[in-house]
Nucleic acid binder design. Structure first.
Length: 384
RNA sequence: GUGGGUAUAGUUCAGUGGCAGAACGCCAGACUGUGGCUCUGGAUGUCGUGGGUUCGACCCCCACUACCCACC
C-alpha cells in the first residue's frame, strides 16, 4: 500500500496511481493519515466535502492510520495517559488530545474503508515490564476503539446523504458485506455503487520485542474480535532478525482467514519474506520517500540515481522493469532531473519505485499461486 | 594614457609573519504505520607570475600580468 499521508501519495497524481505497474492495474489501496488530515485541512471539512475518497478523487480503497504512530514519532511533544495522548501540532503549536474515541471519530469522518485501532507504538528499546504495560494500554484502547467504532461507523460521509456515494470499481470488499450495490446519482450522473458502505476496523498487535508478549497481544486482540489484524511497533530500530521473529510470533496466533497486516515495512526483499511468512498487507513510506531522495529500487538492487556514474548512462533505470518510467526515460535524464532539483525527478522516481513494489507483490502472488516462493526468496535474499 | 582597487578551493569570498578556511557547488552514504527536496560524511588548492626581505612569506617590499572602477 503506497502511503498518502496528507491526502496525496507525494508526487504522484491519482490517475497514475490507478495505472501503476507493468500490468497497469495500479494501486488497489492507499493510506491516508489521521494525524495530518485532522490538523490540516481538518476532518470535519473533509466530511463536509463528502469524505476523503471524493475530496482527493480516489475511488479505490483507503486505509487510515490511527494517529498513534505519528504521536509516537513526535515524542518530544506528547504526553500519554490512560485517556489518550495529548500533543502539540507541528504546524502551529496548538494543543490537541487524541483518544481512541477521537481517532475513530476522525477516521470515520474521513470515510476510510479500513480504520485502524488507536494504539501505542511501544518505543524501542523497552524493558519487558514497560512493553507489557504498553501492550495492555493498547488492548484497553482497542476495546474502546471497537466500542466507539461499532456505535458510530454509520456516520461515514456517504451514509449521511446518499448523493455523496461514488462508484469504486476495483475495490476489495473488506469487512462487513455491503448492502446490495445499486445505482447512485451524483450531479445528474449515475454511478454504480460497488463498495461496502461500512468501514472495517482492524486491531493492532503490540508487545515490543518479546515473542511471548506478541503472542499474548495477538490472542487477546483476536478475543476482542476484528475483521483484520495489524502487527505494529516494528521497524523502530530493531534487527531484521528480530522483526521476523516478532512477525512470526504474531502470525502463529492471528487467524489465517483474516487480512494480516504488518505496518510500516519494508525493503523489497523484506516484503517478499514477510509475504512468504503469511503477511497479506504492508505499507511503507520507503518507496516514496527514498524516491524523493534519489534512491531507486530495481531488479539489480538499489540505485542512487544522483551518482555521477549515471551522468551519461543511456539505459532505463531498470531494464527489466515494465513501468512507464523505465519504458521511456534514461538514467542520465533522471540523474539530470534530480541534480537540477526538477520536481519531475520526484514524480518519475516515485512512479518507478511504486511500480517496482507493486510488481514485486504481483510476483509474490503469482509465486504463491504456483505454490513456490522459494525461488523468489532466493532472488530477493541475493539482492539484500 | 593617468589614478585607484582586486587576484586564495569549481564559484563567491574570509584569513594570519609560524599546519590553508567558510558558504555554495562537487563526491558519496543514510532514509522502514512520511512535519521537514531532509540528515551524515568526504575531497578540494603551485594562495595570479617572477624576484626580494626574513630562521620562516598566502601575508611585508618590487616588477610584471589579468580583471574591475574612476578620470582623460
Amino acid at each position: 500500500m503506497p502511503v498518502g499521508t496528507a491526502g496525496s501519495v507525494k508526487a504522484v497524481p491519482q490517475d497514475i496511481l490507478e495505472d501503476l505497474g507493468s500490468d497497469h492495474l495500479g494501486a488497489q489501496i492507499i493510506l491516508g493519515n489521521t494525524y495530518h488530515l485532522y490538523l490540516r485541512p481538518g476532518h470535519e471539512l473533509v466530511r463536509n466535502l463528502g469524505g476523503l475518497h471524493r475530496f482527493m478523487s480516489w475511488e479505490r480503497a483507503l486505509l487510515t492510520d490511527s494517529g498513534g504512530f505519528q504521536v509516537f514519532s513526535l515524542s518530544e511533544l506528547r504526553k500519554v495517559t490512560e485517556e489518550g495522548v495529548s500533543f502539540r501540532s507541528h504546524i502551529d503549536g496548538t494543543s490537541h488530545l487524541f483518544t481512541p474515541e477521537r481517532s475513530m471519530e476522525i477516521q470515520i469522518a474521513l470515510g476510510a474503508d479500513i480504520v485502524m485501532a488507536f494504539d501505542e507504538c511501544t518505543e524501542h528499546p523497552a524493558e519487558k515490564e514497560r512493553a507489557r504495560e504498553s501492550m495492555e494500554l493498547t488492548l484497553r484502547w482497542a476495546r474502546r476503539s471497537k466500542k466507539y467504532f461499532e456505535a458510530h461507523k454509520r456516520e461515514c460521509p456517504w451514509t449521511e446523504s446518499g448523493d455523496r456515494v461514488i462508484g469504486r470499481s476495483g475495490d476489495r470488499n473488506f469487512g462487513e458485506s455491503p448492502k446490495s450495490p445499486g445505482i447512485v446519482e451524483i450531479g445528474g450522473q449515475n454511478y454504480q455503487e460497488q463498495r461496502p458502505t461500512m468501514p472495517s476496523l482492524f486491531g493492532i498487535v503490540q508487545g515490543g520485542m518479546y515473542g511471548d508478549l506478541r503472542r499474548e497481544s495477538a490472542e487477546r486482540t483476536v478475543e476482542i474480535g476484528f475483521p483484520g489484524y495489524a502487527i505494529g511497533g516494528l521497524s523502530v530500530g530493531e534487527s531484521r532478525t528480530k522483526t521476523m521473529e516478532m512477525i512470526a510470533a504474531a502470525l502463529e496466533i492471528l487467524p489465517k482467514d483474516k487480512p494480516r497486516y504488518v505496518m510500516g515495512v519494508g525493503y523489497p526483499e523484506e516484503i517478499v519474506q514477510y509475504a512468504a511468512m503469511g503477511v497479506d498487507m504492508m505499507d511503507c513510506v520507503l518507496p516514496t520517500r527514498a524516491a524523493r531522495h534519489g534512491l531507486l529500487f530495481t531488479s539489480e538492487g538499489r540505485m542512487n540515481i544522483k551518482n555521477a556514474r549515471y551522468a551519461q548512462d543511456q539505459l532505463p533505470p531498470d531494464p527489466r522493469c515494465g513501468c512507464r518510467v523505465c519504458g521511456r526515460y534514461t538514467r542520465a535524464y533522471l540523474r539530470h532531473l534530480f541534480v537540477s532539483q526538477e520536481p519531475l525527478a520526484a514524480v518519475l522516481n516515485t512512479i518507478h519505485n511504486l511500480a517496482f513494489y507493486l510488481d514485486t507483490m504481483r510476483s509474490v502472488r503469482h509465486a504463491i499461486e504456483l505454490g513456490d516462493l522459494s525461488g523468489m526468496l532466493r532472488g530477493s535474499a541475493s539482492l539484500a
